[in-house]
Design a protein around this nucleic acid. Structure first.
Length: 211
DNA sequence: CTCCCGATAT
DNA sequence: ATATCAGGAG
């Protein structure tokens, strides 16, 4: 089976499994999604969802974060790991949004990645889910692993993987490609013990039973 | 390439 | 004890 056909088959089967995929992170505004996604680096979404309510109760507005003491932010986000980087980045991002973007989260990839701690992955998540804009495919640890195992890429660099994936799917599906691969990665094809015996992609998986 | 880094499963 | 979890920057 050709790569593009396999890519479509993967999407169709997973879309049937997950009819209305939505982010597992809890959020209600573009800023909240940006914060939640930034905190999710090397951390489970479950833990992020424990931290963000505390974060947004303490600093409800972007301006509150811009003016907050970095050590206070560190205390709140500590349990998500990389807490010094995350606290510093969020304060810097909030400050830049206030000073440069009039207090509104920018709606383009080019602008979003100028914020501290926001690269293509986080920007793609915010754009697709908060603004309904597909400028890229968010390549996180799950997308990276699934794309490799399913033979959709041979690369290891997320930017290169994204370039391999984008031509395989119509732009309007880019946001869902991320969701579907993330959910399926978590439930059926995790890093350690993939459940190949109960996998509905088993017959089209180049790596079935391997690794 | 290295470093950042806590929480949890194995 | 080690690997992994919705990454990003120097």
């Amino acid at each position: 089976m050709r790569k593009k056909e396999r890519a479509k088959e993967i999407y169709d089967r997973l879309a049937k499994r997950y009819p209305s995929p939505e982010p597992a992170l809890h959020w209600s505004t573009p800023w909240e999604l940006l914060v939640a996604t930034a905190l999710s680096a090397q951390c489970t979404d479950e833990r992020v969802n424990m931290v963000t309510p505390v974060f947004f109760e303490r600093w409800p507005e972007i301006s509150d974060v811009a003016e907050a003491d970095v050590t206070d932010i560190e205390d709140v986000v500590r349990s998500t790991g990389f807490f010094r980087n995350k606290a510093k980045n969020l304060k810097a991002a909030a400050t830049r949004i206030m000073e440069v973007y009039g207090g509104e989260v920018p709606k383009t990839m080019a602008e979003l990645i100028t914020l501290g701690g926001v690269a293509r992955k986080t920007a793609s998540i915010v754009l697709a889910n908060a603004f309904g804009v597909n400028e890229g495919i968010a390549v996180d640890t799950h997308v990276k692993r699934l794309a490799f195992r399913m033979g959709l890429t041979t690369k290891t660099d997320p930017i290169q993987i994204e370039k391999d994936l984008m031509p395989l799917y119509p732009r309007e599906q880019w946001g869902d490609v991320n969701h579907l691969l993330v959910f399926f990665g978590r439930e059926v094809c995790p890093a350690r013990k993939p459940k190949c015996d109960e996998c509905e992609l088993n017959d089209i998986c180049p790596k079935k039973g391997v690794k």
